[in-house]
Design a protein around this nucleic acid. Sequence first.
DNA 1: TGGTTCTGGCAACGTTCGTTACCAAACGCT
DNA 2: AGCGTTTGGTAACGAACGTTGCCAGAACCA
Lengths: 202, 202
Amino acid sequence: MAERRSLLLDAALELLGTEGIAGTTVRAVCATARLNARYFYESFEDLDALVLALFDHLVDTLRAEVGAAVAAAGTDPRARVRATVETTVRFVDSDRRRARVLYVEGRGNERLSRRRLESGSVIAAELEAEAAGRGAGGQIHRITAAFLVGGFSELLMRWVDGAIPVSRDELVEDATELFLGLGRVASRISRAERTGRAERAR
Amino acid sequence: MAERRSLLLDAALELLGTEGIAGTTVRAVCATARLNARYFYESFEDLDALVLALFDHLVDTLRAEVGAAVAAAGTDPRARVRATVETTVRFVDSDRRRARVLYVEGRGNERLSRRRLESGSVIAAELEAEAAGRGAGGQIHRITAAFLVGGFSELLMRWVDGAIPVSRDELVEDATELFLGLGRVASRISRAERTGRAERAR
DNA sequence: TGGTTCTGGCAACGTTCGTTACCAAACGCT
DNA sequence: AGCGTTTGGTAACGAACGTTGCCAGAACCA
């Protein structure tokens, strides 16, 4: 029964990653998985539950890979950011259906959208902490994190679609520099905020 | 008959901006517009056609407003970028259904997604030219444009949703500085690309 | 006033969806 | 070998969908 659940997840990745949410129905998923429709409800209460489970599985897998790569990258901030970027690029490049699930179909669905924000924020916060240096607070970091998540998603989507004709290495290189630069910009804005807007705290 | 078309567009904005694409059906649109379903096909061939028309209408309106604001902003690059950002923020803030249509439901749909990329790229290219200074070529600008479009979209979505608790003025301020900073970063990468990777051209 | 066009409500068609029931074949266990 | 459980296919249900046709009025022009 656990393998039936796995088959359904595979089928959901295939359908969501190619046909999109419109083509992802209970009937279609079960047909793709060569399973009887009756077994769907044995593993998932709902289509939403299946999609959510698929999304979480992808996010968890990616996060684990990123975590390992960053740990192996040592202490240099540039190397750590680069490891994050490269691992993510490879993750969607090795199976392009993942990009669509993570970055396209993640919207629209209410619960999925919330989930996407949460996990995206976590990754972005980590990335941004690397890029900007830890301990720098302020609203600008939330803004930068949102900007980073959205920007990287869009970038990956377009690159996977072939709209940005650069090699994977070039993409990783440029995106890394962009992230690091964005972190520096955010730090500068943060300093300006602290000295300019608020009364000098402490 | 032209006013029926307009009623349908209003209804589409209401439904797409609140219920999302799933709740936007021919029947629902016509019910919202208090129109007979028969009249739908008088103005639009298809649900896709209606959604596309709504999207184009929003993009055209926004672009016109941005164009006017930028023209009125003078020649200072910071003022021009700020005018673009502020106009866009006001545009979605004054009617929050617009944000969902432009930035959420713009995905998923095949034709709409392509349209979104095109118009987004145009705006981003202009913005980026402002921020980075004209004439600087290279792939990095396509990358930066994609990053900018996605980042700003995400930022606006989260801000409209209340996930980023800053005032509209603060948002405009910080986003403007972020854009300008990103432009400088892109220019620097571009220079590094030209002197580093390629054989020195000319 | 008579005829023609425009309007709006209702119903209907066929299709697809989620979901569940039924039933025959296959399988594992004692 | 016999029995209970698991499998897989088919069919069925009500609901919602896109789309079209019909028909009673309202409005308009001569």
